[in-house]
Design a protein around this nucleic acid. Structure first.
Lengths: 226, 226, 226, 226
DNA sequence: CATGAATGAGGCTTCATTCAT
DNA sequence: CATGAATGAAGCCTCATTCAT
């Protein structure tokens, strides 16, 4: 099961009083769903990879579907935590010359979070089209994030977005999705062949594009005139 | 099978000497794969929706997998034709004030093509992570498109890209993927609720973002004032 | 379809007014049944090997079973002709010193007939256990052979069997079956590796054994005293 | 499932730690394969006769083919044990007047073993032409039997074979095969109608033939310690 | 509490056979 | 008359799930 140590930590963090066996099942499921998709993965395979009996899965989860949805819960929770909150206070507290600088920091931070635990994003993206429950859960969770509030700290310090926060968030989400999609799902072979430097460059270029696109450069030039 | 008339036309165009029944099978498969995914669709369902016996499917396709790959071939072919070639000559011939104007036209054109035959993009995006053959096929096809050449006409007329064509294409592809992904796969319910006007606005905003991001506005305007 | 020319001749002889296509079907069926067995051979394969459409088979034979039974008819007929009658008059007319000499000639003659058209014996032996009709047909046909009469010519000339004709025939049949069975069905690889000389030796030994076993040597020696 | 008690014992002996259900499957398979042949027997039938679900078969055997090969393993093992070893020591230890007497005892002994568990020989003989693996297995096993050694005890006691052991064994095998083939596969109806006495007589005659044929009588008489 | 044998519905595929063309 | 598309029953096998041990 490769280097899924980070997964162990994730599960320990989110489900601390989970038995070792249950954790193994979740890990195996995550690993296999990510590689082959939910529908194409059998409970037998999961049991085999987890090193438990087939029956054990159903002791812990009432059905394969429920196992997947539990998994998705963990994933969404993790995404919420890391993507929307982790490191944000620090990011927001820091002083920035202008919005561009801030957004660059933000985008870089978020993208590196994503690329770290890529398998969990893969599952989410892959399964979301087929399971309305997942979509509902995700929307509910995302809706709870006080987007505007997160960004409000900044305006106090004189950094203004040129567009409504909602729009910016949607655009960012769209682009992040596209980034993961293309790099990790559509042509993974292509991006896997890249050296770390090339990847860094690829990411930097994309961030530059994002920042430019969000019209954040302009105000800075305006701000520059002050 | 809903309003899949455009599909009929597509199939007639691409596989003109296909029997009616074979076409029905392909249509049903496309419809179901798009909704439930390849792995979760049974050949029985396909047969039922196509109004044929299950055996008939295997008279035309040696396996379920082959049916899917045939479908993908059609889809890729169609995408190549519409996305890379359809309407491009006209777009490229026209006179543009600056690259921004051109790219706006281009993006709008491409996006509307995509949103028209959305199911075929859905299938592609949904199945691509699970089938290396599809990725190979797609890469091979895309690699054949003379990207630079397509854009070369423009530089003659004084419209210069600020970035290497390759980068621009990748960025555009990334964003288009993200656009489809978010609007049609991740939260389709959200975007389905939109009025045509709202959708138009959504698209316009996104195009503006794209164009800005590709640094095409600034230089041209700057260059213009120089 | 290998060197099945003798089959062509056989069919021409037995079913002279058979269309070319029908003959091809019979040949293909014979070939495949002999190799894989009736149950494991599909009509599709037969059609493919015969170079005709699947439907064509059913124009000529009402069912796969009937095709097989027709085949068996041909085979039984052929066996009757070659095994019980072909060359027998000559064999019987000749002068022999003693029964041993005659039986040696007979056994050699019969065995070489068998090994020539081995595929048809293979089919018969392979399918006989599973189809009562075949057994009935065979018994009926064999019962019609005037065994005693065939041998009666000999006693006139002073050659006496030490055992009832029926017993001798059964024993011979048993041994011939065993010979074909072991050499061609049970360990064909072993006997295929043999050189023609080795095969000849193998057969000679077996004939010697047969003749000895049928107690034909002894009386002759007794007869010798006459 | 008729009188297959001996099969129960056989399986208990050879696969002692086999679950009851697995044994039922094997028994049913053996029974059906023997009657209808491997290719014409469906897993559903086997399941029905064994009184288990179809799925159960595949919990125990990875495929229908593997079930058959397992069966064949058991059969070959059994044949090796009973045909080559069971009772041989006793047979060999006893005192015999001459080789004829010994061989008569041997043949009678072997033939009665065969006719007892006839179904397993039927399967072997029926399936052998279609499955090279079976042939290989059988040859490997048979090659391991120390034929010459088995007979060597005898020469010490002054009983000499007139022919090389190998030849004798092949001839015996050939005849035994032919005996089973004709009596149980080719015209079972005929031999089934026989009274026990008639069968006994049939067997005795055949043994006499065998012994004569192997030239064992003569030398001994010549050897005429008489 | 864990196991893995058991289930039976359902998966994909092949079959012999029919029938419109 | 030949074709091969069409059929639907049946084939082998896998599935998620249950339950006795």
């Amino acid at each position: 099961m490769q280097d899924y140590q980070w997964l162990d930590e994730l599960l320990e963090k989110q489900m601390p009083n989970m038995t070792a066996k249950k954790r193994e099942i979740v890990k195996a499921a995550l690993c296999l769903f990510s590689e082959k998709g939910y529908a194409a993965t059998s409970t037998k395979e999961i049991a085999a990879m987890a090193g438990v009996s087939e029956g054990a899965i159903f002791k812990h989860f009432s059905s394969k579907r429920e196992l997947m949805l539990s998994l998705i819960d963990v994933i969404i929770e993790e995404i919420m935590l890391t993507l929307f909150y982790t490191g944000l206070p620090e990011l927001l507290e820091k002083e920035y010359e202008n919005y561009e600088e801030f957004l660059t920091a933000l985008a870089r931070n978020r993208l590196s979070i994503i690329t770290k635990g890529i398998s969990i994003y893969k599952i989410l993206i892959q399964e979301i089209p087929f399971h309305p429950e997942i979509r509902e859960k995700l929307q509910k969770k995302v809706a709870q994030v006080p987007m505007a509030e997160l960004f409000s700290h900044l305006s106090i310090r004189g950094l203004e977005l040129q567009r409504p926060v909602g729009e910016v968030v949607i655009t960012l989400a769209t682009c992040f999705c596209g980034f993961v999609q293309t790099r990790y799902l559509i042509v993974p072979e292509f991006f896997n062949r890249m050296s770390p430097e090339e990847r860094e460059k690829d990411m930097v270029e994309f961030i530059r594009f994002l920042v430019k696109g969000l019209e954040l450069a302009e105000p800075s030039s305006v701000g520059g005139s002050k």
